[in-house]
Nucleic acid binder design. Structure first.
Lengths: 215, 215
DNA sequence: TATTGTATTATGGTATACAATCATATAATC
DNA sequence: GATTATATGATTGTATACCATAATACAATA
C-alpha cells in the first residue's frame, strides 16, 4: 500500500515547536507561558495554543496553576533519580528483547548511529548527538517490540532533556559513552541478552550518577 | 492555615467525565468522538471539549485521525502484554521501596483497603473493587516514594481498564486476589522486600495470564 | 508604613464564523 | 449496470470577539 502522509495540522506543528522550545531549554523551567504571547510568537490562534498547552500538560512538561496560567515544569532531584531508575528497567528489558530479535540490518544501523554519535561528541555537537542517541535507542526498543515502553521512555526523556544534554557532554561521557554503545551492539550481535542487559544497566547507571551530580 | 480549595475548572470536570466514560466502557473502543455531540452531552463549549480531547490523546486513550475526528483507542494483544510486563517491573520496584518505608499507619490502611476489596468482590461490585485496588496500589507507590512510576502506572491502567475489570471479576481472581494482597501486606509488614516483590510479581503474572485469555 | 482601592493583565470559558475536508447520496455518463 | 462526476451535508481545523473572574502591581489614603 502506498500510503500518502497527510499534511500536518497547524496544531501538530505548533506542538512540536513548543515542545522543542522547552526541551532545548529555550524556555526554561519556571518560565511562564502566556497564551497570547505564544500566539504571537508562533503565529497561530489561541485555540491552537491552548490545545498544545493541554497536550504538554498531559506530558508533564508544563504544569498549570489555576487562574495563573502555565509554567514550564521544574524537576526535583528525587524525580530525576526515579526517572533514571525507570529507564534502567525499561531499557534493560528492551535491550534483552532486541538481542533476541536483531538481524544484520539492525546491527548495521546501530553501528552507523554509534559512529555518528561519536563524531558529534568529538565536535561538541551535543544537540545532534542527543538526537542520534534517541534514534539509537528507538531502534533498540522497536526491534524488541517494546513500543509502549519506548513511548514512556520518550516522555521521561523529554522531562530530563536538559540533564541529558549536560550528561552527554560531560568529560567522562564523551569517550566512555560510545564505547558502552559499542559493547551493547556487540552483545546484541552475539545474541547475548544477559551481557547486553548488564552493559546497558552499567551505562545508564553511570549516566544517572553524572546527572545526580549535575543537578 | 485555612486553605480553601479552588473550584475545579470546567475543563478538569469535563476531562474526568470523559475519561470515566471511556475507562468504564460507556464509550467503547473504536467509537467515534464527535465534538459537538460531546459538547451537548457534557454541556460545555467546543473549546473545552477539544482541550479534553488533546489531553486524552496525549494519554493514548483516544487517537485522532486527521480531518476525521477522534476514536476511542483500541488495544492489541501485544500492547496488553507489554503493559503488564511494564507494570510488573514498576510495581515490583514500588513494593520493595514500600516494604522499607511503610509504618503502621500505612499497614493498617492497606489492611483496611484489602478487606473492602474482598467485600466488593463478594458482592460483585467490580467497579468499586477496581477503584479500591487503585487506592491500594497508590498507597504502596507513594509510600515507596515512586511518584513518577505511579503516574505511569495510572496511565497504563487507564488503557486496560476494561481488561482489568474483567480480570478482577474472573472466577479464580475473586478469592485468590485478596489472598495475594494479604500476603503482600504481610511481607511489607515484615519488611521483607524480596518476598513482597515475589508475591507481587506472581500476583500480576496471574492477572496478565487471565487478561491474555480474555482478550 | 500598612492598608485599601484601583487599573491592568491574564486566564477560564463561550459563541460564532468560515474554510477545508470527508462521506455519502445522487445524477450523469459510458 | 457499472463507473464516474457532482452536489450536499457533516465535521473538523482555525480564527476571532467577547465576557467574567482572578491575580498582580501600583497608587492613594489613613
Amino acid at each position: 500500500m502506498l500510503k500518502v502522509d497527510r499534511p500536518k495540522t497547524l496544531k501538530e506543528n505548533a506542538l512540536e515547536s513548543l515542545r522543542d522550545a522547552i526541551t532545548s531549554d529555550l524556555i526554561k523551567p519556571g518560565d511562564r507561558l502566556v497564551e497570547r504571547t505564544l500566539c504571537e510568537s508562533m503565529g497561530v490562534s489561541r485555540t491552537v495554543v491552548r490545545e498544545c498547552i493541554r497536550h504538554l500538560e498531559s506530558e508533564r512538561l508544563i504544569v498549570g496553576v489555576p487562574n495563573a496560567g502555565f509554567i514550564v515544569a521544574t524537576i526535583s532531584r528525587d524525580e530525576v533519580k526515579e526517572i533514571y531508575d525507570i529507564r534502567i528497567m525499561l531499557e534493560c528489558s528492551a535491550v534483552r528483547s532486541c538481542a533476541l530479535n536483531a538481524d544484520k540490518a539492525v546491527i548495521d544501523k546501530l553501528h552507523q548511529l554509534r559512529e555518528q554519535i561519536a563524531t558529534c561528541l568529538q565536535n561538541d555537537d551535543v544537540m545532534q548527538a542527543l538526537k542520534l542517541t534517541t534514534e539509537f535507542y528507538k531502534l533498540i526498543f522497536t526491534t524488541g517490540g517494546k513500543h509502549v515502553s519506548w513511548d514512556l521512555v520518550e516522555r521521561l526523556n523529554a522531562r530530563i532533556s536538559r540533564l541529558r544534554a549536560l550528561t552527554l557532554s560531560s568529560t567522562g561521557r564523551k569517550t566512555k559513552g560510545p564505547v558502552n554503545l559499542l559493547n551493547i551492539i556487540d552483545a546484541i550481535e552475539q545474541k547475548d541478552a544477559d551481557r547486553a542487559e548488564e552493559i546497558c544497566k552499567k551505562h545508564l547507571t553511570e549516566a544517572a550518577e553524572i546527572a545526580a551530580k549535575l543537578i
